[in-house]
Write a protein that binds this DNA or RNA. Structure first.
Lengths: 138, 138
DNA sequence: CTCTTAAATAAGAATTATTCCTATTTAATA
DNA sequence: TATTAAATAGGAATAATTCTTATTTAAGAG
């Protein structure tokens, strides 16, 4: 993702272009495993030592609000973020690795299923699978 | 869940029967919305003011290890716990409500699907749906 | 290009959730 | 009833995140 793309992403979502926001989007571009705020802060500190920790949190929250990134659900109380916006699911194992799982056929099966079967008192907006298991070759 | 059942639950899992553990299982019996540690601590404080906060955390962790309860994945950094052990999925909305969703037909569809389709480099142990949406009548 | 202003950020204090530590207590069992 | 490993109390420590306020800056107007 080059600079032009980053600028577009920001303006498209009605956000001012700032060095801090640009840096964080660059960081996401480098990382491909659902980084925690902590990991991003670490990266930012190395490349832009003058960006404040609070700003990273603020910016991440702003990006979530705008739909540029998403929060990943976890069960250990540390937030992680996902830059991918195409529909996908998540593979979890015990060692905190979270990987994306894309499966268009599965998406269609789910969509079909819930086209007929509604959940009383609940309006579905999105379905994501948490697939728990073990990575073999890590 | 009466006292006998609670005692059984503990001994069955090789745990000593203590007032603290009993109290926490009683708490779960009162609560039906995936309480956070905080909520449980609040409840415990009212009924047994002499049980320490750390003990509640320890005990919850012990119960998770033994499979008596499960952690629920969330995206806001606060752990929540689930006493239900039958297979089920979760409905999430924006207001922190998490409800159980049981659907045997769906479970079978998923099981069938992943009987044929394997995920390279990953051995599936369990699949849970995060269904995001809105509760109508809350 | 300069000015204006709302928005964004820095810096660090404060808060929240959770874990850790150690002395004391207790449940199980012999 | 005595023994002992396991469990707990109490509170300090840590980690993650949010909050606060003064300062800086990006974007648009003139």
């Amino acid at each position: 993702m080059d600079f032009i793309k980053i600028r577009n992403t920001l303006t498209m979502h009605g956000l001012k272009i700032t060095p801090q926001r640009t840096a964080i989007l660059e960081a996401f571009d480098e990382m491909r495993d659902h980084p925690s705020a902590d990991i991003i802060i670490e990266y930012i500190r190395q490349h832009h030592p003058n960006i404040a920790t609070g700003t990273v949190y603020n910016t991440l929250e702003t990006f979530v609000d705008k739909g540029i990134i998403q929060k990943v659900k976890t069960e250990n109380g540390v937030m992680r973020y996902d830059f991918i916006t195409e529909k996908h699911h998540h593979l979890y194992d015990d060692s905190n690795i979270i990987k994306d799982y894309f499966d268009e056929e599965l998406n269609e099966i789910l969509q079909d299923y819930f086209k007929n079967k509604t959940i009383p008192g609940f309006e579905i907006e999105d379905i994501k699978l948490q697939i728990k298991g073990k990575f073999n070759n890590v």
